[in-house]
Design a protein around this nucleic acid. Structure first.
Length: 566
RNA sequence: GUGCCCGUAGCUCAGCUGGAUAGAGUGUUUGACUACGAAUCAAAAGGUCGCAGGUUCGAAUCCUGCCGGGCACGCCA
């Protein structure tokens, strides 16, 4: 619990006068009961029971007697071994709704990261391959982490470390020489490159000589062979153009497009630095850094033919990034399958004396599989992101045509809803879990989904169009069961963001938004707003305006739009 | 083979870093559009939290072992 509101602070203050524990400890122990009927906060008395050698229930009962009356609290009661705090509902409503409406877009943010920079490496698709849904995960998790850290006050640097260098380009050049067609390439560049890539791997199984050809061409590329460079440049340009189109559809932006090739000129310096630290050794013709003492396989920096590897470039990139930004954190949003690789990379940096390696963190996520199998670009069993987006948007378009045919700007709203559903489907679960791609799930817009949250938002907007919230209203009227539940959940937004940032798990924000939308939907069905008696109506308008604001702020942290109508 | 990760309702998943009767969604059954948008709400039914030990006042959560699944393990990225 790194963020406390004034109510929590007051409870800690009151308790620290009564209990032989440090405020920090009380803060730690303070918990949220399973449901609101048990109160807003609870203090378990088990630890005190040991100190006082008395039953926890007895201690709770004694404490309940001693806690002085406080305007922020409605009551404090002992319930078994717990001391339960019920907040003053009127004060909670005034404070929470007032704060949201005053801070607007700023509500939920904090400044814990003030003055610190976080570098986020995400998306990083392999150019020369179509953008599959595998890269989607890195893209949307990274995008959300960017926004969450920004909300926590960090200066964020988003880098798209595109895979525009490496042996794969040797493969592509080789394949192009064998089966490439300039006309087809001009007409449908991405598809043609994909076909070449798949064909290369199919044929290479029968003819291992192709792999040698590929390694050769990559070596030539690194040595600056004009023909190789020209082809590489061409493949890179057309792939980049395609990528930008996909990012626009997704609504994702980067501060830097420093791909692997960006670091080419610096790589010799890196290898020299490794050598100077006495780490570089030759083994079976390749140049490596041994990590035997760490219980890991060695890290390869140069192949037998002298060409560089992924690790060489990543090492270079890390050093460049630290020298450029002096980051407080560097996050690598990359799949779990590369866990060992990152441990190796960080171990080498550490051996080189780069103390800042402690600030580097691999943010892993589970694999996407399709019908039980791992998706593989090589085998061509890839699902194209573009197709997934089109299907999701198409589904949204259909539903709009059916339910809201007069909606203006239908195409854009369909994009917001369809893409939102896709993003939310991914971010709402713990990123470490593998996901089974299913079209059913992509097409399902009911239940715990982005459209559910967007729908709540749109309904609020619809009410507010009929009667805008007014500045003057009596928020202390918001004390019935549903209003209270809604106010309580609104007050927890800052904590949800803080937790998401701390753990680098956007799912905490996603889950939180479901709670808010669900609580709003209940309220909506039980409590009339427009037809309520005048004072209550004013207060409820303010309440739903606050809900609208929190939903919009939260969706934006996930990279999801909040349309006013849908 | 070794290491890391995962295993909660038919299915997909939450479970706030050890606490109060294990929660949602989906699917099934049923009810609600003559109140502000039914992409909604309400209700029923559904679980030996993989198995076995251990630590603890207290374990889905921590430790150990086993079972099942995934991933990784030198010239790909």
């Amino acid at each position: 619990m790194i963020v406390m509101n004034i109510f929590q602070e007051q409870i800690v203050r009151l308790l620290s006068d009564l209990v032989p524990l440090e405020p920090e400890q009380i803060k730690e122990d303070l918990e949220i009961p399973p449901n609101l009927e048990l109160g807003n906060y609870a203090f378990p008395c088990f630890k005190l029971a040991k100190v006082h050698k008395a039953a926890p229930g007895l201690i709770a009962a004694r404490l309940a007697e001693k806690v002085p009356a406080d305007p922020l609290l409605e009551k404090v009661v002992a319930n078994g071994p717990y001391l339960n705090f019920f907040l003053n509902k009127a004060r909670l409503a005034q404070h929470t709704v007032g704060e949201v409406l005053q801070q607007k877009e700023e509500y939920g943010k904090s400044d814990v990261g003030k003055g610190r920079t976080v570098v986020i490496d995400f998306s990083a698709p392999n150019i020369a391959k179509p953008f599959g849904i595998g890269h989607l995960r890195s893209t949307i998790i990274g995008n959300s982490l960017y926004k969450i850290h920004a909300a926590l006050g960090y200066k964020c640097i988003g880098i798209n470390y595109i895979g525009d260098w490496g042996t794969q380009f040797g493969k592509l050049i080789t394949a192009y020489h064998h089966w490439g067609d300039e006309a087809v390439l001009a007409q449908n560049p991405i598809n043609h490159l994909y076909e070449l890539y798949v064909r290369f791997h199919r044929e290479a199984e029968l003819d291992p000589g192709l792999e040698d050809g590929a390694r050769n061409w990559f070596k030539k590329l690194e040595d600056g062979d004009p023909h190789a460079v020209e082809l590489w440049q061409h493949f890179r340009d057309i792939s980049l153009a395609e990528l930008k189109r996909v990012y626009a559809r997704l609504g994702v932006k980067f501060d830097y497009w420093h791909g692997e090739s960006f670091y080419n000129e610096m790589m010799e310096d890196t290898i020299k630095a490794v050598e100077e630290s006495g780490l570089l050794e030759q083994s079976q013709g390749a140049w490596i850094v041994s990590l035997e003492d760490e219980g890991m396989p060695p890290c390869l920096l140069r192949k037998q033919d002298g060409a560089t590897l992924y690790a060489t470039r990543d090492l270079t990139a890390a050093i460049y990034r630290y020298n450029t930004w002096q980051f407080a954190k560097a996050l690598y949003v990359v799949g779990v399958d590369q866990t060992l690789y990152f441990r190796q990379l960080f171990a080498v940096l550490k051996k080189m004396g780069m103390q800042w390696v402690e600030r580097c963190q691999h943010i892993p996520f589970g694999m996407i599989r399709f019908e039980g199998g791992k998706m593989s670009t090589r085998q061509g069993s890839l699902i194209f992101l573009d197709d997934v987006l089109s299907e999701a948007i198409g589904r949204a378009r259909e539903i709009i045509a059916e339910k809201n045919p007069c909606l203006p700007d239908q195409e854009e709203v369909a994009r917001q809803v369809g893409v939102g559903a896709l993003i939310f489907g991914d971010l709402s679960n713990d990123r470490i879990k593998d996901v089974d791609f299913s079209w059913d799930q992509v097409m399902d817009f009911s239940g715990e989904t982005a459209p559910y949250i967007q729908y709540a938002h749109a309904r609020i907007c619809s009410i507010l169009r009929k009667a805008p919230a007014e500045a003057e209203c009596n928020l202390s009227l918001l004390v019935n069961e549903h209003e209270y539940a809604l106010v309580s959940v609104l007050s927890k937004f800052p904590e949800a963001i803080a937790r998401a940032g701390e753990t680098c798990k956007p799912s905490f924000v996603a889950r939180y938004l479901i709670d808010v939308a669900k609580e709003f939907s209940r309220f909506y069905h039980q409590c009339p707003v427009l037809n309520a008696e005048s004072d209550v109506r004013g207060a409820r308008l303010a309440l739903i305006d606050a809900v609208r604001q929190v939903l919009a702020n939260g969706l934006s942290l996930l990279g999801i739009a909040a349309p006013e109508e849908m």
